[in-house]
């Protein structure tokens, strides 16, 4: 039995088992509910505008979208922001705003930006029990005589990734369909193309965070502690980075312990930057995976 075949078997078993045990059901429904909740935050003002100003439907939507985008990216007074956008220091922000707001379906861009902030936490729900669940109940002892620890971990990681990617695809598909059918603001062509690109960005972004969830699942023997550990790490890294940066600038680089510092470049207009960011994300995922493999291989189970 080759290791690769065993990895696929473990992935399939993990998918089936997580759905049957209910944790997968909870993960899917929670992620989709929260994801669509984000979408509703973005869509709601537009829907209101459409209802109150039907005669200006097309223009109003884009106008409100522009305001929303700018407000989201840099809270403050709109008039001041427009002035600021023209200044040197906000050139990049202006470029980003125009790129996301004017060149692509506005609402989808904003929804994906919001999802990019929430998904890292939600993805932990799909991976926290990968290893810790079996370790806690010692059921891993039935598997170990028949497989290697590395195959087991890689298989479970692959299963968690497939589950996460499926959920992200369902979520993104629902949002794109809703935008296309109920709020036909941007043509289907642009919507689908940008939808696929943003979907790819979210799929890549999922890799390091799912790997982190699996790593925590190998470090802690209780699934709930693993979940708290991974979510805590994801949330405290930016908090510590931002607060300590005030004291000493280099401490701001703590943000790069996770993809927080560069993940937004997955939506960059520059293809080279996107490719580099994808490689960074995959590299981050690889580092977490290697640590997890080393940890599991040395662990007392």
């Amino acid at each position: 039995m080759t290791g690769r075949w065993q990895i696929l078997l473990h992935a399939r078993n993990f998918l089936s088992h997580s759905l049957r045990s209910g944790s997968g059901v909870a993960f899917i429904v929670l992620t989709v509910m929260v994801g669509l909740g984000c979408a509703s935050l973005v869509f709601f003002p537009i829907e209101s505008e459409i209802i109150t100003a039907k005669e200006y439907k097309e223009n109003a939507a884009q106008g409100v979208g522009t305001i929303l985008a700018v407000v989201t990216l840099q809270p403050g007074k709109f008039s001041t922001l427009i002035e600021q956008i023209e200044t040197e220091e906000l050139v990049e922000l202006a470029m980003w705003g125009r790129y996301l707001v004017l060149d692509h379906p506005v609402l989808l861009s904003l929804t994906v930006l919001l999802l990019g902030l929430l998904l890292p936490v939600l993805l932990q729900l799909g991976s926290f029990a990968c290893i810790a669940g079996d370790v806690q109940h010692h059921s891993i002892r039935y598997l170990l005589p028949r497989t290697t620890r590395t195959s087991l971990l890689l298989g479970r990681l692959l299963g968690a990734l497939i589950l996460s990617w499926t959920v992200i695809t369902c979520l993104q598909g629902a949002i794109v369909m809703y935008l296309g059918i109920v709020l036909p603001l941007d043509g289907w062509g642009a919507l689908i193309a940008w939808g696929l690109q943003t979907l790819a960005a979210l799929v890549v972004l999922a890799v390091p965070y799912v790997a982190l969830g699996v790593l925590c699942s190998t470090i802690f023997r209780s699934p709930m502690v693993a979940l708290m550990g991974s979510v805590g790490f994801i949330l405290t890294v930016p908090l510590i980075a931002f607060s300590s940066r005030e004291a000493w600038e280099p401490l701001g680089n703590l943000l790069y312990l996770l993809p927080w510092g560069y993940a937004h470049h997955l939506l960059s207009p520059d293809g080279t930057v996107v490719v580099k960011t994808v490689l960074y994300c995959l590299g981050h995922g690889l580092i977490f995976t290697v640590i997890a493999v080393l940890r599991l291989r040395r662990a007392d189970l």
Partner: peptide
């Protein structure tokens, strides 16, 4: 009419996602 529909958030889950999810679960997984 459009103003009677709030096809976003929770409602969208029910309308577009949940029926499909339910079908997959009862005819596939379970």
């Amino acid at each position: 009419p459009l103003d009677q529909l709030r096809g976003v958030g929770m409602d969208l889950v029910r309308q577009m996602f949940y029926p499909l999810f339910l079908l997959i679960m009862v005819h596939g997984i379970f």
